[in-house]
Amino acid sequence: MTDTNRLVNVFVTALEIPESEVNDDLKYDQHKRWDSMAHMILIAQLEGEFDVMFDIDDIIDMSSFVQAKLILKKYNADLSL
């Protein structure tokens, strides 16, 4: 499984949304399922899936699917942008 597939699966699970909704247009402030509680679940699941520990700036900055890819690339995830 690619890192991109793993990332999509985490978003699907954490936000409880269909895979079809996980795309580069997905943003925190524009999706009703992505609230503050879902954000913390997402962070925890991403840290577990990718075996990383985000710093506080990364947690705050992760406001979109695209931003999640950019942040995970800092931790050496192999994700296409």
Results as ranks from 00 to 15, higher is better:
31 H>A: 05
14 A>F: 11
37 M>V: 15
57 D>A: 10
47 E>A: 02
40 M>V: 15
38 A>G: 08
32 K>P: 14
65 F>S: 04
47 E>C: 05
25 D>K: 15
15 L>N: 01
50 F>V: 06
65 F>C: 03
23 N>T: 15
19 E>I: 14
71 I>W: 04
48 G>A: 10
34 W>F: 08
74 K>G: 07
18 P>M: 08
48 G>K: 13
47 E>I: 06
58 D>E: 09
39 H>F: 10
57 D>F: 01
45 Q>D: 08
37 M>N: 02
58 D>H: 11
50 F>L: 08
14 A>W: 04
59 I>S: 03
76 N>Q: 12
42 L>P: 03
49 E>R: 11
17 I>F: 14
24 D>Y: 14
32 K>T: 15
35 D>K: 09
75 Y>V: 04
27 K>G: 00
62 M>Q: 01
20 S>G: 09
43 I>M: 09
73 K>L: 12
23 N>P: 01
60 I>Y: 14
43 I>W: 05
14 A>S: 15
46 L>S: 02
47 E>F: 09
77 A>L: 10
70 L>D: 00
41 I>S: 06
20 S>Y: 13
61 D>A: 15
45 Q>E: 07
37 M>F: 15
65 F>P: 01
38 A>W: 08
58 D>V: 01
24 D>N: 15
58 D>Q: 07
75 Y>F: 11
75 Y>R: 12
31 H>K: 11
72 L>W: 00
58 D>Y: 04
62 M>E: 00
17 I>H: 03
58 D>K: 05
36 S>H: 11
23 N>K: 13
33 R>G: 01
48 G>I: 02
56 I>D: 09
48 G>Q: 11
42 L>E: 02
41 I>Y: 07
70 L>A: 11
28 Y>S: 03
19 E>M: 15
37 M>K: 03
39 H>S: 08
40 M>D: 08
73 K>H: 04
40 M>N: 13
